[in-house]
Amino acid sequence: MPPSVRETRQRTAIRNALQSQNRPLKPKEIQELAQQECKSLGIATVYRNLRTMLEDGLVEKLEIPGLATCYSLPREIKRPILVCQRTGQIHWLKTRPADVDLSQVPPNFEYEGHEIIVYGQFQT
């Protein structure tokens, strides 16, 4: 943890919530899980801590059009993303990253990265 970031009960509970699920979580999901450890944790505190943790590189934000913003612990490897269209949950596909042929990218396009998103539904 960067030296400027003070470790708090709330921040620890948020990090533990993210670690416990091993998938990106919506702020409300983070709050519900973190409240098991920190009963009085409010949603405003979750957002405030996520903002600080994001600035310090302790979490990453995942924004997919049409879905609520999710947060996860930083990933070393960018794996393809699974989106359940029934529940709106996001999961990591447990495979190596997909190779993408970037030879067709125009020379005046500054490539910054990519994500592979797979849409479907988990069967219950």
Rank of each mutant, 00 (worst) to 15 (best):
R79N: 12
P27S: 08
I14C: 03
E32K: 04
L93Y: 14
Q31G: 03
R6N: 10
L93S: 15
K94P: 03
H91S: 14
L73Q: 06
R51T: 09
L50C: 04
T45R: 01
L62A: 09
P74D: 09
I43F: 02
M1K: 11
R6K: 15
C84I: 06
C70K: 15
T95R: 11
I81G: 14
A13R: 08
P80T: 13
Q121V: 05
Q21Y: 07
T95I: 00
N16R: 15
V118D: 04
E32T: 05
F122A: 02
E32V: 02
T87F: 11
C38E: 01
P3E: 15
P3V: 11
R79G: 10
G88A: 09
V105W: 00
P74F: 01
E60S: 07
E60Q: 13
V46H: 01
P65S: 07
T95S: 11
E63L: 12
W92I: 04
L25I: 01
G66L: 06
A34V: 02
V105Q: 00
P74C: 11
A17E: 07
D56L: 04
C84N: 15
G113W: 04
T12D: 09
R51F: 12
L82G: 05
I90C: 04
L93K: 15
K39Q: 14
E7G: 07
G120C: 03
I116H: 02
T124H: 11
E7D: 13
T124C: 09
E110I: 06
E7A: 14
Q85W: 01
Y119K: 06
I64A: 13
G88D: 09
P2N: 07
L18C: 04
L93I: 15
I43S: 09
S40D: 12
R86N: 15
C38N: 05
E32P: 06
A13Q: 03
V105I: 08
E55H: 04
K78G: 00
L50S: 07
T52M: 13
L58C: 11
L102Q: 06
S72L: 10
E110P: 06
R75D: 12
K39E: 12
E32R: 08
T45P: 05
L62Q: 09
A44H: 10
K78D: 00
R96G: 13
T95C: 07
I90Y: 07
P2H: 05
E76D: 14
Y47C: 05
T87N: 13
K61R: 15
T69R: 12
